[in-house]
Design a protein around this nucleic acid. Structure first.
Lengths: 180, 180
DNA sequence: ATAACCATGTAAATGGTTACATGATTAG
DNA sequence: CTAATCATGTAACCATTTACATGGTTAT
């Protein structure tokens, strides 16, 4: 599954331009589990167009640039279903924040605190962002994923908040030691 | 931060061969937040060697192939600390399982159930794997990350277990409808 | 004025995965 | 006898990121 499949997925919800698809990736409830920039979305859409999996109409707008609105074709929907019926690959995560906390003893106390505080903020912001999505009238899959995102982000934020002393206390001890 | 930095980090814990570093990535407590294969580790180690950030000695072994054991140099440790003192990039996650659940209505009921059940198993296995790491006598950073991993994995597994009906119930309803 | 938003795209570079290549030993 | 573990490495391929390029509109 690559960004082409994700674009097909986005278009299965409704017609959209590349710019709008980017926003869906940023704001949708699975935005926290996949992301893509313009540099991958625009080429993906052009490839899908060449393969007849989507169609495109250019729409002139007053006061802003024209946009290209893409729609899923029947073949496109079939392709999406095929992609979704494969066995899912294992999750791939890479978190520099966690690497930094893991090697916390090699960081300056100030940086260590900055990393953890901004990581807490990251999860709190994520919660807020997910909460803003109205789950009513959405297909059960979207509601389910919204709930999962919230559960994970809340658990992470809570753990970090409740245990950050473990990472920061030693700093104080060291300060006392230095002062003595 | 790339795999070169991660290798420096691994070697900061102790001397190791490429093969052993891979294992650390697989079994360590941040294994769930970063991963790397031989195809990236071996080239990374050779680059680090060329930059004098690590040294290497070949050790002959009886009954098994010789191994190359790498050690961090002073410059290597400095480089690691520099890498760790940057601002961490945002987490990057991509989860095909979540994408599939999100578009659950486009999947066959059987596949939908398979995806969710194996995803639960994935998190449960992850918990077991983390629990096997003995946190005693480890630096606080490693204990902290171990706890965070457990918290997140447990939250995910619990949410999935408790709410999977949301994703599967519709399937039953449909079956009843079909039968009637 | 200046930043942010709307809107699309390309080219180069990066970085990582996959497949291939080799081969001895040990446990089931 | 077969699979797994130990052990290293390269080359081709792939996907994505980053930087560049453009330009009007709207809100502060």
């Amino acid at each position: 599954m690559d960004i082409k499949s994700l674009c097909l997925g986005a278009l299965s919800i409704g017609d959209a331009s590349g710019y709008e698809i980017k926003k869906m990736f940023e704001e949708g409830s699975f935005s926290h589990f996949y992301d893509a920039g313009y540099g991958s979305i625009y080429p993906a859409l052009n490839k899908l167009l060449a393969e007849d999996l989507v169609t495109c109409i250019e729409i002139e707008q007053e006061g802003r640039p024209a946009k290209k609105v893409y729609s899923l074709t029947n073949t496109g929907l079939t392709k999406l279903k095929t992609d979704l019926s494969e066995e899912p690959a294992r999750d791939k995560t890479r978190s520099e924040s966690i690497v930094m906390m893991f090697f916390g003893h090699l960081l300056s106390p100030a940086h260590r605190e900055r990393v953890i505080e901004s990581y807490i903020e990251h999860f709190r912001d994520g919660c807020t962002c997910i909460e803003e999505i109205d789950p009513t009238n959405q297909p059960y899959g979207r509601q389910f994923v919204r709930g999962l995102g919230l559960a994970i982000y809340q658990a992470a934020a809570n753990y970090l908040e409740e245990n950050k002393d473990l990472l920061l206390v030693n700093e104080e001890e060291r300060d006392i030691g230095d002062a003595a």
